[in-house]
Amino acid sequence: MIVFGRFIRDRRRGLVGWSLGVVVAVASTLALFPTVKGQTSYNDLIDNLPRALRESMGLSAAVPFTSGPGYLQSRLFSTFLPILLLVFAIAAGARALGGAEEDGGLELVLANPVSRRHVLAGRYLGVVALVATLGAVALVALVVVGAPVGALDGVDRAGLLAAAVAVVGLALLHGTIAFVAGAVSGRRGPAVVAGAGVAVGGYLVQVLAASSPSLHAVGLLSPWQWLLARNMLATGPAWTALVLPVVVSAVLVVAGSTVFEQRDLR
């Protein structure tokens, strides 16, 4: 708990900055919604786009871009919010152990009567708390700004909450990969590369899978596919998007913790 508390205090300034950024991003996106709402010409335009492109923008024929669920899904939940949170999570995860060890700050901490497992757990929970907080800020901003402009009309409430949690889950999964890579390597670089590499790779796999039905099974390997398979804002919570990132993250952290406890520090 001491390690966790210290970690949060160390990162609170960064979190405030990121929160402001997310609020501005969400609010400015939503401010444009009234110009799109109900404009059928947009729908015609989008219907003419290739299916793969349409799907990569988070659009489907059933949920038009000009409706609240369609607009929010395509402008925020399919790429913009996940990428913002993902970058934050990867940076926080890579810095928490790998970066700290590389900078040398970890060594003096571990000269105290505290186990490596304890430090790892405290700092990982810190990363989880940071990413979850940023996700909550985004959701609150979305509700506060979205309601007056009518962007929440027709949005499934449980689905909205689930979509926000799922975006946090996606970001956290990649943050976890960076955290664990840092715990194993003791360096920041490989941690960032691992997190970002999986994110980009997973995104490409999801886009490819969406473009061709024969590749659909491959797409199931991509965390992006878990998130984007369904528009939760229109159709309610999708359990794969909520559960899978948590399960995979938990397995990775346990494995990473075992390696971290047994290896030599740098």
Binding site: L108, A111, N112
Partner: peptide, 15 residues
């Protein structure tokens, strides 16, 4: 054991 150890490293690296 580390309750009873005071460690002064050769190279001081702190946050």
């Amino acid at each position: 054991v580390r309750h009873k150890i005071g460690y002064l490293p050769a190279e001081v690296r702190l946050d």
